[in-house]
Design a protein around this nucleic acid. Sequence first.
RNA 1: GGGCCGUUAACUCAGACGGUAGAGUAUCUGCCUUUUAAGCAGAGAGUCGUUGGUUCGAGUCCAACACGGCCCA
Length: 499
Amino acid sequence: MEQTGDIIDIRKEKIREMRHSGTDLYPNDFSVTHSVGDIQQALINNDTGISAENAAIRTAGRIMAINRFGKSAFIRFKDRTGQMQAYVRQDKVGSDAYALFKLMDIGDFIGLTGTMFQTKTGEWTLLADSLRLLSKAIRPLPEKFHGLKDPEKRYRQRYLDLIMNPEVREIFIRRSRLVQFIRKFLIERDFLEVETPMMQPIAGGAEAKPFKTHHNALDMDLYLRIAPELYLKRLVTGGFERVFEINRNFRNEGISTQHNPEFTMLEFYQAYATFKDLMTLTEEMFQQAAVFVTGSVEVQYQGEPIDFTSPWKQITLYDALESIAGIDPAIFQDRDKLMETALSAGITIGKQEERQVLDAGKILTKLFDALVEPKLIQPTFITGYPVSVSPLSRRNMEKPDLTDRFELFIAGREIANGFSELNDPEDQRERFLRQVQHREAGDEESHMMDEDYIKALEYGMPPTAGEGIGIDRLAMLLTDSPSIRDVILFPHMKATDRK
RNA sequence: GGGCCGUUAACUCAGACGGUAGAGUAUCUGCCUUUUAAGCAGAGAGUCGUUGGUUCGAGUCCAACACGGCCCA
């Protein structure tokens, strides 16, 4: 299926020839004094040391292009810091080295020594006084001008995508900077970074279908976590009053431009704080993150400007349903009428058998997802979620049917979810029991009972607020990426049969 | 799960009506010591995603399947 035919055969022939002449094709004893970026920076700084005739520059990289002219050649090579041109002349490097150079290809890694000079057009170029093969490529790189476009190949062979498409490389550098920023932001505020189990006996902390696995020695089933929440709150109980974790969650659900089965989540918990404190903290974090990653507090996302300047819009769930979706508040408690509204609006909710068990709160959130969420482009906090869809959130003191909770929406997507934590163990037990009823009635996404977590609450958890932020989605916003696959290095794909 | 689109050389892509596959880049050979997607001359390279069907004949039409993309659920 995948044959590169004669190109690979020709390269293998070259390899035989090089080996025959005693060349080490994969040495590891070439030391580098300057990266390409170092050289370029020194030239910009007018550092005469770099352009001196006796400058002994040793640099290395992958060959990206070669213009050969008989007894000399221009090559373009790159390392992690950038691309540069080198000029290789037979009379400079010697005829043996030049003969070897003739067997080198685009894609090979080379080490160069030499000095800098300017070509006729003024381009600074490394005049090689020696060059060495550092690693031989057997397979040809994609064509330089069009790069690699086939999306399947880009995802399955991300390394090729990264070699050929500099903008892709830039996206992942930005993603890394985003995570770096968030760590610094939280650590400066005295949060402790922790790691909690990825394999859990009960998959708690969110409504989602888990992946199941089995531990042989213990002979027990385990779930890959759908959220770290219940473990992080155990740590708050244990006295780590400010904790955070940035790590993978796993959800056994569909794949789309917004969903990958494993995705990265930031969760953080702060004792003696409320959901309102976290809303303020989130505004600060995003504003500063946008500036740190993109240089501006306003970013372009798919042609729309997104302005992270605080304060952000706040609206309650009920108000949003009324004013944006146009639903009559009189029916907010009437599950049958809500279901009717949903079905007549063409919104399919759950499977047939699940529809009986969904309560008004759940239907309201489904209506919200379909009718309101896509319209929330600028950062918007939605508050006032019903207790029935917020089994881990603290009740609102004035309106005990609602919770002290918010969700954050940007560019028509949910980006964060936060609330004041429910720390009353008896209320928590009741909430779990309600969830278990729903689960037994067919709602596969309902929470499971977690006695061990309730036990922890029974020892006393301080008043706390916590929040989860989808890092992939935030990375999409800050890199103007339309698909989550664009910000995940190795997105999940179906297995192919070959090999 | 449903709909639409795609899959042709290493890469990017063309292939009206069904008549036995083409370009650019890359590769190879020759010339070439300041090129900038270098140039000139020549050459090689394809199980047209897979399997089946229709047909004298299928890259092209039909069906199923696989993989991918977008949209919907």
